[in-house]
Design a binder for these strands. Sequence first.
DNA 1: CCATTATGCGCAATAATTTTGCATAAAAGT
DNA 2: ACTTTTATGCAAAATTATTGCGCATAATGG
Lengths: 154, 154
Amino acid sequence: MTSLDRFDLKLLHILQRDARLTLGQLSERVNLSTSQCSRRLARLEREGVIQGYSLRVSPDALGLQVTAFIFLSMDKHRMDDPRSAVAALLKRDEVIECHTVTGNHDFIIKVVVGSLGALSSFLAEVVSPLDGIHDIATQVAMDTLKTNGPLRTD
Amino acid sequence: MTSLDRFDLKLLHILQRDARLTLGQLSERVNLSTSQCSRRLARLEREGVIQGYSLRVSPDALGLQVTAFIFLSMDKHRMDDPRSAVAALLKRDEVIECHTVTGNHDFIIKVVVGSLGALSSFLAEVVSPLDGIHDIATQVAMDTLKTNGPLRTD
DNA sequence: CCATTATGCGCAATAATTTTGCATAAAAGT
DNA sequence: ACTTTTATGCAAAATTATTGCGCATAATGG
């Protein structure tokens, strides 16, 4: 078990918002020396609290203009192993997120693609052919008010 | 307009997966000098292709064990300005993502909170009190098969 | 089609940042 | 209270990032 004190939480709070601050800038804000910040971060990484560092890229700049949520229901017997039921989906770069959920559907899947045409192809060529599909519903995002929001640290 | 050549795309592809590679490591993989990688990244940041750098933090380590999707419908007249209709939500740290969507509901909102109790409080104290709410539906994620997947770059 | 200009490049010097050895101080355990 | 462990800051060392410069290549314009 890993316990996080207020310094750790503050580091995580700040770095979630800008992971490119230098240790110098970080140390000012949390009131610790740079060396200690460095060591604490190393520990948080080692213990898996920090899972990685990534870029936020503008989807538009990549020509990805459509975000959609796909709701999937499977035939009952396919749900003993949810992961393998949608294994083919998880590998696809269009799939940003995939969860099993309570409610009418079994999976909720977030995809980001170039166009409505690409969404349509994805549904027809990747989702529909999956084994044991019972139902597919799709909702297209028109306006993204917030994404990749940081987790609360307090 | 910003055009991205194969080097830019390769940089974005790699850094989305690990934004902490050094310019040296990066330069090997893309076959460019470190100085040129540095300059290209500076440009991508300047032009907004790279929107920022962030941490992937383990929700569990922060005691955040519940991910849920909240579906919100508003009274018709509240939807002329979607953003202000949910402005109070966007500020909240529990809200990771918020979109307007096609279909039965107006908004889809992803939240990450500590417990089902916290989810319940959030719904009762933050969502329900919003002005002009017509309907609320919630789906709790049981298993997260993929999150924060990188965008496709090709 | 050549001249001019602009853009992209790598190298090497410089600057900035991160990591580590070490001594000290604070906590924790006995 | 005493010992052991853990956390800390400082300063040196190592690593990494940035920039000036000269050269090449490609785009622009006459």
